[in-house]
């Protein structure tokens, strides 16, 4: 399956621009961003703080509508300027997985339930969802924390639960904003490898915002952002390494 899909576009943005505020407080956080991520690809997004990485990621994640420009997921146009072309809530639930910088778990659920709910919302029977949630937590090495409340988990553990939830619905787009910041390098690498596997097995397109220069070797492409503008690092552009 992965082989057939490789090469087709997973995520494509065209002249994506985001302006926050207006008048005196106007901030152009992103200007004419053009990015293409193919199915099976894992790309990195680098850049200094305030350069617009999160703005880009949340736009592509369909939670922060762009001021202008287009977003295509697969071959479907989903955002045309600030106008949604599909039901965003449904699209997010079925197609997109997120891991964000700071912990983003539902506080009144325990670790296992946080993963399970993503699948149940997508219509998976409770029993199957529970089984799969435990499986995913196992892969991320936090199976023994499955029944712990969110507040009982360390930052690294919370991040791994968030990764498990992002992977739960086998998304076609996986977006991660500094997912390894709270993890030690061994775990960080392990998470990156999981991302790779999702890309390969499901033909997902993966974008990871990172500061960690040491892990750049696992990416198929590296984009760099500066003052709201995105450019690819030429050396790293090429066909997906693992397909």
């Amino acid at each position: 399956m992965a082989v057939e899909m490789a090469g087709e576009p997973a995520i494509e943005t065209r002249d994506l621009t985001k302006v926050y505020g207006s008048g005196n407080t106007e901030v152009v956080a992103m200007r004419d961003a053009n990015v293409l991520v193919r199915k099976g690809e894992v790309v990195a997004l680098l850049g200094p703080s305030g350069s617009g990485k999160s703005t880009f990621l949340t736009a592509v994640g369909l939670i922060n509508p762009p001021t202008s420009g287009q977003i295509l997921i697969g071959d479907q146009l989903v955002m045309d300027g600030p106008q949604a072309q599909v039901n965003l809530r449904t699209f997010r639930r079925t197609q997109i997985g997120y891991v964000f910088q700071k912990s983003n778990l539902i506080t009144f659920l325990n670790a296992r339930e946080n993963v399970q709910i993503a699948m149940e919302l997508d219509g998976m029977p409770s029993r199957d969802a529970r089984h799969r949630a435990l499986e995913l937590l196992g892969e991320l090495g936090v199976a023994d924390r499955a029944e712990h409340g969110v507040s009982m988990l360390s930052g690294g553990q919370q991040q791994r639960v968030a990764v498990a939830r992002a992977l739960a619905n086998s998304p076609s787009v996986l977006l991660a904003d500094e997912p390894t910041a709270a993890l030690d390098s061994r775990l960080g690498r392990q998470v990156m490898e999981l991302f790779r596997r999702v890309a390969r097995d499901h033909g997902a397109g993966v974008i990871v915002v990172t500061h960690d220069q040491r892990t750049l070797d696992v990416f198929d492409a590296v984009y760099e952002m500066e003052d709201g503008r995105i450019h690819a690092q030429p050396a790293d552009i090429g066909p997906p390494k693992n397909s």
Binding site: T107, F108, L121
Partner: peptide, 18 residues
């Protein structure tokens, strides 16, 4: 108290009826 969690539920695509 759970507004954050509700926003998160929306983020991961929970429909309004949930």
């Amino acid at each position: 108290d759970k507004l954050y969690s509700i926003a998160l539920l929306k983020l991961i695509g929970a429909p309004n009826r949930v």
